[in-house]
Write a protein that binds this DNA or RNA. Structure first.
Lengths: 140, 140
DNA sequence: GTGATTGCAAATCTTTTGCACTAAA
DNA sequence: TTTAGTGCAAAAGATTTGCAATCAC
């Protein structure tokens, strides 16, 4: 006879949080599930908060901001700045770049191998390059 | 006998404004002079306002914002977004990219020929690429 | 229990806006 | 004149912060 699980969160979410050294609180578990359950996503804090509320997850916007920054510090997310009006968080942390659709504010991955920088200048001595962002800005 | 000019602004500034179809007001003339008199610059609105005050130019921050956006719309400046905390305006509008020093918030030009994108993917049909930004993020 | 986490509301920071006043054409 | 431009103070929007209440360990 099989035991059917009724846990309100996934084992995967638990594992991710414990790997990051973050306590598996109800809010963090739910946010991790929203962020990482499907395919890669680009979300603002406001958007994620909206999704949480729509899924009947009671969480404050301040907590969403905290969680997004903690997840980013833990390497689970990558913060993308393309627009002065708000930050986006990308669930895809591998090497890749972005299309940004200015009119709609939508962000879309460009697989890393579709953009190649054939030359990148050296940074001044003793200053390692932390990251190179390529943003292809498109109307629409 | 030579007539010595005592105009408080340059002919160059006047020309730039008239080319852009903007009235040569005292404030705009002074801001153009600050922006374009020396070498290429990367400034935030706050910084330019500070420089204006330091040069005894009475101008409000709101007017600085207005002017920066008008200059950008006229193609005299390029707005660069690298940081959530504020926008920078670049007096160099030619094809080039940037180093961004995260700790100090400083922005530095990389001449266009020192970065080469060997491949850039097509944007979806009917959506011309407006601009490609490459930001090399460095600590310091 | 004890310290981490949360929620709320207030604070902060950059940028924009409304409107009476001033200046350019 | 007539319309554009300016300054100020208030508003707006995103994000952060302080602190008491709550939760994980």
């Amino acid at each position: 006879m099989t035991v059917i699980s009724h846990r309100p969160f996934s084992q995967q979410a638990l594992d991710r949080l414990s790997a990051a050294g973050l306590r598996p609180t109800r809010q963090r578990l739910a946010l991790v599930k929203l962020l990482f359950d499907g395919c890669d996503r680009h979300l603002s804090a406001e958007q994620l908060h909206g999704e949480a509320l729509a899924s009947n997850i009671r969480v404050s916007l301040a907590t969403v901001y905290n969680a997004l920054h903690q997840f980013t510090a833990a390497g689970m997310l990558r913060e993308i700045i393309v627009d002065a009006s708000c930050s986006y968080f990308d669930t895809n942390t591998s090497e890749h770049h972005h299309f940004f659709y200015g009119k709609s504010g939508r962000l879309e991955d460009i697989p890393g191998h579709l953009v190649a920088l054939s030359k990148v200048p050296q940074a001044p001595a003793g200053m390692p390059i932390r990251r190179v962002d390529v943003i292809v800005r498109v109307d629409g």
